[in-house]
Amino acid sequence: MPAANEVYTAITYDSRYLSPILTLSLRGGMDVESIPDSEKRSFPVDVYQGLDAYQAGELLEALGCPRPVISPMSRALVNLWDMFITSGMKMCEVNPWRISEDHRPVACDFKAVFDEANFKHRNLELELPEYPENVSEFQEEMDRWNVKSYQGQAHVSELGGSGVLPILFGGGASTIIIETLMQSGGDPMFLSDFGGNPPYDRMRGTAGICFKHKLAKAGVLLILGGKANNTRIDVTFQAIADALAEYAPRRSTELPVIVGRGGPRLVPGLLALQRCLEELGWPYTIFGHDTPITMVAQYAGQLCKYLATLPSDRKTA
């Protein structure tokens, strides 16, 4: 079979069918996005009944697959489906299958993703190797801390910035806060999501890791979230204040702090943080939930951008 007829296959879950789908093309060996629509077929697979060889065969035939290849290729696809569903994958791709001279398909490249939420892959007792990660100490420490407990999220992703240190709450909120920071010149250090009503110790640990690695170099500290449904503000903010007091001596200069939050037991939380900042003598501005988080983020970003233009000796109070 000539290289032009290498077979592309992928099994994924598709948002149009809300079902697993099998995608096939005889134009394998290239990026699936660059295969023209006319040369690939997608076929929803019944998640209960699975893929059978007959369906796979029909699909291959429709694509114009050479006849002797159809049967062995169909069998390989059924096995691939079997692997996909019994190991709890959310996507797997073989690109390409090469066809030997005696019409046998051979999978020549492969990638797959297990669904972490699916217990099946853990039941297989697969030996999944650990890949060395090229991540910062901060990222590594936070990732380790994150998996230690399911109480409250401790997600961070390094962004490589050197401006705003963001302590953010809520998955949706943190994304648009970071976007706003980027647009307004805030140069955020990382993306964070620390929502989910973390207890005191959890929040204290999370904030401690952030401050340990990032406080010394930060331009502005931003503590921001929307109006929380469940997260207790007095608990989380006291924890942040205590962590801040612990790591503040690592800075030689004051750090402006911008805060915005709403939610249960807001006032004791804001006052706990204010007290800490007054003790440290750091400049601060605290907003309630009546100021939109994107406006607070914009202000923090602009402030950070302006401070970065000052000569370093003028930043010291």
């Binding site: 390989a76 096995n79 691939l80 079997d82 692997m83 019994t86 190991s87 994958m89 959310k90 797997c92 073989v94 046998r104 398909p105 051979v106 999978a107 020549c108 490249d109 492969f110 990638k111 797959a112 993703v113 297990f114 669904d115 972490e116 939420a117 892959h121 297989l124 697969l126 030996e127 999944l128 190797p129 890949y131």
Partner: peptide, 22 residues
């Protein structure tokens, strides 16, 4: 959250178990 699988793991662990020709 997800766990990615590379080709080598597929060749060694998954392909033999599910009789996928490699």
């Amino acid at each position: 959250m997800s766990h990615e699988v590379g080709e080598l793991t597929f060749l060694r662990e998954l392909a033999p178990r599910y009789a996928v020709p490699v």
